Computed example of a mutant assay.
Amino acid sequence: MATYAIGDLQGCFTEFQQLLEVIRFDPAQDKLWLVGDIVNRGPDSLPLLRCIKQAGDAIRMVLGNHDLHLLMVAAGMAANHPSDTIQAILDAPDRNELLHWLRQQKLFHVEGQYAMVHAGLLPSWSIAQAGQLAHEVETALRHDDHHELFARMYGNEPNYWQDDWTGYIRLRVIINAMTRMRVCTLDGRMNFAFKGNPQSIPDGYMPWFSVPHRISQNTTIVCGHWSGLGLHITDHLIALDSGCVWGGQLSAIRLEDRKVFQIPCAQ
Rank of each mutant, 00 (worst) to 15 (best):
G167Q: 03
E256T: 11
L90A: 06
N80T: 05
F16W: 14
L171A: 08
C223V: 02
L107S: 10
I52S: 05
V260R: 05
W226C: 06
S216C: 13
M72H: 15
K31H: 14
V22E: 14
L250K: 09
R103M: 12
I86K: 03
W101K: 08
G230W: 00
P207C: 02
W226H: 03
T220Q: 13
N176T: 02
L250F: 09
I59L: 06
L121A: 01
S210Y: 02
G11H: 07
A115P: 11
D94M: 13
D145N: 15
C223A: 13
Q10T: 09
A79D: 15
G196M: 00
I201H: 06
V22D: 11
G36V: 10
L19F: 07
V73P: 11
G204D: 06
R254F: 06
H232Y: 13
T3L: 12
Q104A: 14
I59K: 00
Y114E: 01
V35G: 09
D164A: 12
L20N: 03
R189Y: 01
V211P: 04
E256Q: 15
Y4R: 04
T179C: 12
A58S: 15
I127E: 05
L49S: 04
L46W: 01
G188Q: 08
A119R: 03
M61E: 08
I86D: 01
S83Y: 08
M178A: 11
D235E: 15
I238V: 14
A128R: 13
K195C: 00
P198L: 04
N197T: 14
C244K: 05
I127H: 09
G224N: 11
D67H: 04
E157Q: 15
G243M: 12
P47R: 04
L98K: 07
G56R: 04
M206H: 03
E138N: 10
A75L: 01
D57Y: 05
D57T: 14
T179N: 06
A75Y: 03
S216I: 07
G196T: 08
R152Q: 14
I38C: 10
I263S: 06
D163R: 07
T219K: 13
A266Q: 13
R24P: 05
H66R: 12
V39W: 07
F108Q: 09
G228C: 07
S251H: 06
H118I: 03
Y168N: 09
G167M: 07
N218F: 09
C223I: 01
T220Y: 06
Q217T: 13
C223H: 03
A140S: 13
I238K: 01
L133D: 04
G36K: 07
R152I: 00
G155F: 05
M116W: 02
A5W: 08
G204V: 00
S216L: 01
L20C: 06
R182T: 02
Y205D: 03
R182S: 03
P27G: 09
Y4M: 10
L186M: 12
D84C: 13
Y154A: 08
G76Q: 10
I23L: 07
L133I: 11
Q199T: 13
C265N: 15
W125N: 01
H118L: 02
S126D: 06
L250N: 09
